[in-house]
């Protein structure tokens, strides 16, 4: 967790490089030859009309889908087809468009599951509360407390997440992903369905995560205002093809992007 990134934050090397990615479900071509990269510490937005292939793109990065064509390079090495679990082991965390929390469990337990990969002590040691396991549990509990403080959900620790309002559930979803201390954080419409106030909070959290922890973030978002405000670079998809890529200013002036959003007169 490197500090000192605030203000003149330094965008680093390419951490994720996708070359010529094509993905089809039967006859439906979700992605067609999409190429883009993500650099260290940046906030990279994926935008596009409904059905443009944004979520598919995220699912490819996350290992849910395996593209039929193209290569994914992660942290400088070409990656074979990984499953979601392996992607998580490699430091890729995500949140979900339709919240996918463990509804029967408390906020605390939900976030603790994010630490699972980092817990090392054996089954028996944990079951019988051996000192080593106890120490480890405390250590992870502390990390979770930091995340809880960071996202300002102290009041809801013991609440079953099913009872929380929508905006807070989204926040717990983010908290669980953060507890993994990911290198790369994928956010699938983190602000969907939120009111203005909740959106502002979420924007602040995303910027803070990026700023304080130096986490690289790839996010999908529909709210153009938000995207233009917080992203370093934006990629625009339409019908599974990339039609624009660049800084928010460049994308805003791109004729193909304007056409895709506003329609073209023939």
């Amino acid at each position: 967790m490197g500090g000192g990134l605030s203000n003149g934050k330094s965008i680093g090397d390419v951490v994720l490089d996708l070359q010529d990615i094509s993905l089809a479900f039967g006859g439906v071509r979700a992605l067609q030859g999409v190429t883009f990269d993500v650099r260290e510490h940046e906030i990279r937005a994926i935008i596009g009309p409904n059905g443009a292939g944004k979520s598919s793109m995220l699912n490819v990065i996350n290992g849910v889908y395996h593209p039929q064509q193209g290569t994914v390079s992660y942290l400088g090495a070409k990656r074979h087809d990984v499953n979601t679990h392996e992607a998580a082991v490699q430091g890729i965390a995500r949140t979900f468009q339709n919240i996918a929390l463990f509804k029967g469990m408390s906020v605390l337990d939900n976030i603790m599951t994010g630490r699972n990969l980092r817990m090392k002590s054996g089954l028996l040691a944990q079951a019988f509360r051996l000192p080593s396991a106890e120490r480890e549990e405390l250590q992870h509990r502390e990390a979770v407390e930091q995340v809880i403080d960071f996202l300002e959900i102290q009041a809801y620790r013991k609440t079953p997440v099913g009872r929380l309002p929508y905006g807070l559930q989204k926040r717990v979803d983010l908290a669980r992903a953060l507890a993994m201390e990911p290198k790369l954080l994928l956010l699938d419409e983190p602000m969907a369905g939120m009111n203005v106030e909740e959106k502002q909070d979420m924007c602040r959290f995303i910027l803070d995560v990026n700023d304080q922890f130096g986490t690289t973030i790839v996010l999908i978002e529909h709210d153009m205002g938000v995207v233009m405000d917080i992203s370093d670079r934006v990629i625009v998809l339409d019908y599974g093809r990339k039609i624009g890529d660049g800084t928010p200013e460049q994308v805003r002036g791109n004729q193909a992007v304007i056409d895709a959003y506003l329609g073209v007169s023939h």
Binding site: N62, V64, N83, T84, H85, A87, A88, V89, A93, R94, F96, A100, L101, F102, K103, G104, M105, D109, N110, M112, T113, G114, R115, N116, L117, M119, L123, Q126, A127, R129, R176, A177, M180
Partner: peptide, 26 residues
């Protein structure tokens, strides 16, 4: 086992949501 171990917690997580459980590395 269910209440005190990380595997127990993982089991409960899997029960609730397969996809989400996988995405956090279970």
């Amino acid at each position: 086992f269910f209440q005190k171990t990380k595997t127990g917690r993982a089991l409960r997580a899997v029960a609730d949501d397969h996809l989400a459980a996988q995405s956090i590395g279970i």
